[in-house]
Write a protein that binds this DNA or RNA. Structure first.
Lengths: 111, 111
DNA sequence: GTGACATATGCCGATAACGGAATATAATTG
DNA sequence: CAATTATATTCCGTTATCGGCATATGTCAC
């Protein structure tokens, strides 16, 4: 059994660094494919293939206009990932607190 | 060129659903491997292999004690993922706002 | 040391992903 | 219709991954 398909969910889709770059690039404005190619310095077929994956898992939306295709990030699933990471928020606050406390103790000991 | 290694970064490591299960399970308390096996109903070699990946990218820490190995989630890299998703926070608030506004307009039109 | 327990590693076969280059599809222009 | 532009798809070879089972390593208890 190989790894789960990149199209199986948002977590798998964003494992690829280039796809994260694309999502970041498309976060605040829709853009045609050619702008992604120029902006991120990637080959056009490569961009199209990555967009297909992102589209399939719902991480981007397309609007077709003539021969152009305008893509933009759809943050619905990114929000889901955000929520998953938030499960650990309390935990890392504790870890930071421990580090801080230890640092303060060390500093106090040095005086 | 195949997909990037699962050990290449936290994003690749958490693409695997079982590994996310393990991280969630180990979020608030360290646990020996056997408890993960029981708690998540997975095979022991499978758990050990997933833990190796998570350890390699720094998503878990181990404390060895006798023949037991206690693992716990290290949230440092999860925080990095959290920060990446936060880049989109403003965007999804806009999207929610649009949906809300549209819903209100629809409701107003119906009256 | 022997046996029991806890965890880690090795071997296997099947499969999907990646980049690159070529080519296909679709829309526009003249 | 032919040429051009914008995007999508296909083919190819290489390679890491996964689960399952067997087995190795390490630790304790008698």
């Amino acid at each position: 059994m190989p790894r789960a398909a990149t199209t199986s969910d948002a977590f798998n889709a964003i494992a690829e660094p280039r796809r994260r770059d694309i999502l970041t690039f498309l976060a605040y404005a829709e853009r045609p494919v050619s702008e992604i190619v120029d902006g991120l310095q990637m080959g056009q077929p490569s961009v199209s293939k990555h967009l297909r994956v992102l589209l399939e898992v719902g991480l981007v939306d397309v609007r077709r206009e003539g021969r152009q295709a305008f893509y933009r990030t759809n943050t619905t699933h990114i929000k889901a990932i955000h929520e998953w990471t938030r499960l650990f928020e309390r935990h890392w606050q504790n870890q930071l607190q421990r580090i801080k406390t230890r640092a303060e103790r060390t500093a106090a000991a040095k005086q």
